[in-house]
Design a protein around this nucleic acid. Structure first.
Lengths: 152, 152
DNA sequence: TTTGATGCAAAGACTTTGCATGCTT
DNA sequence: AAGCATGCAAAGTCTTTGCATCAAA
């Protein structure tokens, strides 16, 4: 029934990753590659702690601090998204799929991806003219829209 | 231009508040009333720390721990909403307006309310049939939808 | 009077940071 | 060789909790 989503079929190989890091003035390290690979391979949206466990399966010599630092790096490079926790003080989750898509937050805290076609249709359903009107009335420009579903 | 929103013209008086607490098996205390009043009076969406400062203006004898506890209580009673921070480890913000409305998160971390009429139109723009289709495909029922805009 | 609620401080969860060492460039 | 990145542990931020005291019902 609940088939796992994985539309982040990592289109980024080692060489492209190196280039992206370089474009941001960053070095390519074994740890950064491991963290990124583990995140891409993970069907779910892991917390930093869960991700460390996954990373250790392929590279035991990575510290938790480096996972945190690297996740910040990946987010800055546009290689990952940070998903804030919905509960007080809860851990953020991370997503290697930076394409615009919708999440569904389950009661147990897990987060499912909404299939790309449905995500697109949901986002497209929001009329641009509403956002324009809003920008005018609030006096600030609207630069993004995020839709989040809840379910269980 | 950027006129402050305040469509939470606290429709709840002291007596109604008491009743709501009672319905949840909770006592009405001076601290709970103060925290709720301060939250309603606050045009912005304060953090727990900011709210303590506001509460102290009308009732200096309230502790930070009680503000945290009371905010949990208010959320459970449906008297407030918790808005998770968008940054790692950031403080949650709270909103006395529990009606369905859209938030716009500014780059500086502040959160604006989208005027009720626009919020409604944004939410209504999402087609129900898409959510139905999604529920079927993911095998979970969709119980809520949240739209968040970003701007600055 | 009987609990539930508070205040304080300590503990807990999550994340960041300082510094010496190592590795990428 | 130069300097960024790592690992470790400590510190920092936000939130919850244990326990004695207080107050609502």
């Amino acid at each position: 029934m609940t088939e796992p989503q994985s539309h982040s079929e990592h289109q980024i190989d080692a060489e492209q990753l190196r280039q992206i890091f370089a474009q941001h003035g960053l070095r390519t390290t074994r740890q950064r590659e491991s963290v990124y690979r583990a995140l891409c391979a993970c069907g779910e949206h892991p917390t930093a702690e869960q991700l460390l466990a996954l990373v250790h399966q392929i590279d035991p010599e990575v510290s938790q601090a480096t996972v945190y630092n690297t996740l910040d790096t990946l987010v800055e490079c546009g290689l990952a998204n940070r998903i804030p926790s919905t509960v007080s003080g809860g851990a953020c989750r991370y997503d290697a799929d930076t394409g615009e898509h919708v999440h569904m937050v389950l009661k147990d805290g897990r987060i499912l991806d909404v299939p790309l076609d449905l995500s697109q249709r949901l986002i497209d359903a929001v009329p641009t003219e509403l956002l324009d009107e809003l920008s005018q009335r609030l006096g600030v420009s609207c630069s993004g829209i995020k839709i989040e579903l809840s379910g269980g």
